[in-house]
Amino acid sequence: MKLLPRLAAVLALAGGAAAITTVPAHADNGDGNVACNSGEICFYFDYSLGNLRRHFWNADMQHNNDYYWDPANNRQSSIKLMDTAGSFWNRDTECAIKIWDITSTGDWFVTFTAPRGWKGDLRTVGKQNRNNGHSRC
């Protein structure tokens, strides 16, 4: 899917996507390389593993503090990972990854379990690409 429609969706979400926590950005960016390498947990903004990406080694239940990396321009994007992920690649060597969402009433729930090696479009997870965190195993 092209970037502009996704950006429109992000802006539409922005009003209701207030952060549940206030922790500053942290340093888990996987190995820092553009490629999604063995052991990494990789989120992408586009539906087809496109340009904007965010890699992790660890679990993170605070996606509101995570921003995509834009390798085409070699800089951090201003788009948050929370509720915007379009595709995903689980290259964790040990674990299935659970993707979590949180409701306005404060309930956390799993939206998707991605087994080891799973790669693809996250639209099946929810119409709004909802994600607030991910956990390993």
Binding site: G30, D31, S38, G39, E40, M61, E94, C137
Partner: peptide, 13 residues
């Protein structure tokens, strides 16, 4: 939500 415990991880390029 607590961040659950995680098993060891292996990485390689």
């Amino acid at each position: 939500r607590d961040v659950p415990a995680e098993p060891p991880a292996v990485r390689s390029t």
